[in-house]
Design a protein around this nucleic acid. Structure first.
Lengths: 338, 338
DNA sequence: ATGAAAGCGCTAACAT
DNA sequence: ATGTTAGCGCTTTCAT
């Protein structure tokens, strides 16, 4: 067991506890000789500090809580990875919480994080409405920034991409390949990203003169099977869209599968696009045209905002950092016409 | 800000701090009337406790640290998910650390976790040799169990699957489809799982009379591209194995891609198997025959061992919990011959 | 059943 | 530059 405390080090080095604290944290100048003796004593005893005691005293834990709808979704995995990496540089550590698409569990996690006195919370809310109360409550106790998805709550910042702009990139690309009609497959409209992607799709399809039939917007969930199912319906219908635009890559994978099984060639017979550019999108066949989210940048912006809020707890009003998405063209869409 | 302390609640309820503590934690009987007054006062003030102070006093943080080689690998994502879920039931929270395949970073994370006084550490070591020192040091301060991969260190438990048994399942299945020769594509032999899978492959191939040429064991890394590259070599060689057995699903995806591009049909021309049964293995084409690891069970066993060690810190010698793997047969292998 | 007091390990005022 | 003291918020003896 590691029962070595600062008192042990102080005793061995023949100085006071404060001096040990100062020498080790370099929070104040300490005599060179003493410095060395303390260092030696600490390493001899294998002293490693106690962040719990330090946290209690300094009212700062050097931890951040992150709450995501599902770590199993590769997009959120990437986001978690980026956050963990960004935190590393700050010497902070990450409490990972998975809300499993459940607003009640999400609220529970938020409560626990508050009790743990994390220095900040990063959350991608499960539901536009059901998540608001718990998030508002949490934001009252600690700096909180919403990442990717967000709900309408005062006193929180948001970091994400411009979803409408992303749909514009997708549709402009499709239009340039000659597409005149397109369907949209997405999840239920229970969160902000989903809503804005659909709105963006509608807006830019209209602007570009791309036809969208009423029953060409299909709502399921963010999963391969859901995309497969939706595509089967679209394929079976009397008129088929020239392109199927998907709200995330998982859905797109399902669409690709349905097309393959229906004997439709992608992109010759129908073009398909995804969203998020998860790792596998370059490994499926055909490789998937998708929207890349700058997750590393998103993570660093998130930490920047968290730090800002920590410094100035009373700064009102949320900052919204909307980053530019990037279109990654692969083989599920046709070459641009000239 | 949440500056409500137990003293505030005590004052409002007109009792001592001790009584509030007892009433709220029910650690000792408390008069019914007092109980109610305390409850009321606490909720009126929005008191939510301070786990830092509690941890300092109780010498117990209700946190567990988990260190994985890469959260971006879907298998470890699943493992993290299972752990987070199992922890939830115990009211504990998870510090997630990604060692990014780097033993030095892994050691750094372990040090931080020790300082944080986590109640236990769960780790999948990066490297058979380079990881040992840091793990041994950590295991001296806190209960530690190795999950999936492991290194040879005293005083640690291990939970994983029987890798050799898994290879037996794979090869027995392949043999029953008529396979007479097989290659093995894996990563460099820098960790226990990888070593044991190869050993199991060799052992059972020999036992079943499956031919394995010297240059049919290819060492790369756990990635799609590495599998692709290895398969290209195998395909180009004068004699081609009837089956390509892969040490994980990512490698297998790469092998499938290489086969497709070489015009080889799977499973007609060559059979392919994966390992880990990650979610995508059922969504690729052809769907992948793989080995399923019981991650939920692995997580609960891990927590059980951690709890055991916590109770009895001096229990020597490691427990090894080796769970049975399960073969999931899909379309990348042929039907069994009769 | 309740209260008073001590103390977990650390850092920051306040001395000197 | 170093030591002394107090106290972060809580739980737990030890009293009563």
């Amino acid at each position: 067991m590691n029962a070595v405390t600062i008192a042990d080090v102080a005793a061995l080095a023949g100085v006071s506890e404060s001096t040990v604290s100062r020498a080790l944290s370099m929070s104040r100048p300490v005599g060179a000789a003493v410095q060395n003796r303390v260092r030696a004593a600490a390493s001899e005893l294998g002293y490693s500090g106690n962040s719990i005691a330090r946290a209690l005293r300094k009212q700062k834990t050097d931890t951040v809580g992150m709450v995501v709808p599902s770590i199993l979704n590769p997009f959120f995995t990437t986001l978690v990875d980026s956050m963990e990496n960004a935190l590393l540089a700050d010497g902070k550590q990450l409490f990972l919480c998975d809300s499993r698409q459940d607003p009640a569990l999400e609220a529970h996690h938020l409560r626990l994080l508050i009790e743990r006195h994390v220095d900040g919370i990063v959350i991608s809310p499960v539901d536009s409405t059901a998540s608001t109360v718990a998030i508002a409550a949490a934001a009252r106790s600690v700096p909180l920034v919403q990442l990717d998805r967000h709900v309408d709550v005062e006193n929180t910042d948001w970091v994400g991409i411009d979803d409408a702009e992303a749909m514009k990139l997708v549709l402009t690309h499709l239009r340039s390949t000659g597409v005149r009609s397109a369907a949209f497959v997405t999840s239920q409209l229970t969160n902000s990203s989903t809503e804005q992607r659909l709105a963006g799709f509608r807006l830019h399809a209209a602007a570009l003169g791309i036809q969208v039939n009423d029953d060409w917007v299909v709502l399921g969930d963010y999963s391969v099977d859901s995309g497969d199912f939706a595509a089967q319906r679209l394929i079976a219908a009397p008129q088929r869209p020239e392109a199927i635009v998907c709200a995330d890559d998982l859905i797109a994978f399902g669409v690709l599968r349905a097309c393959r099984e229906a004997g439709l060639r992608v992109p010759e017979d129908v073009q398909v696009t995804g969203f998020d550019n998860i790792v596998f999108s370059e490994h499926v066949t055909p490789s998937l045209t998708s929207i890349d989210q700058p997750t590393a940048r998103m993570a660093s912006e998130t930490l920047r905002l968290l730090a800002l809020r920590t410094k100035d707890r009373d700064s009102q009003g949320g900052a919204n950092v909307s980053l530019k998405p990037r279109l990654v063209v692969r083989n599920s869409t046709r070459p641009v016409q000239r």
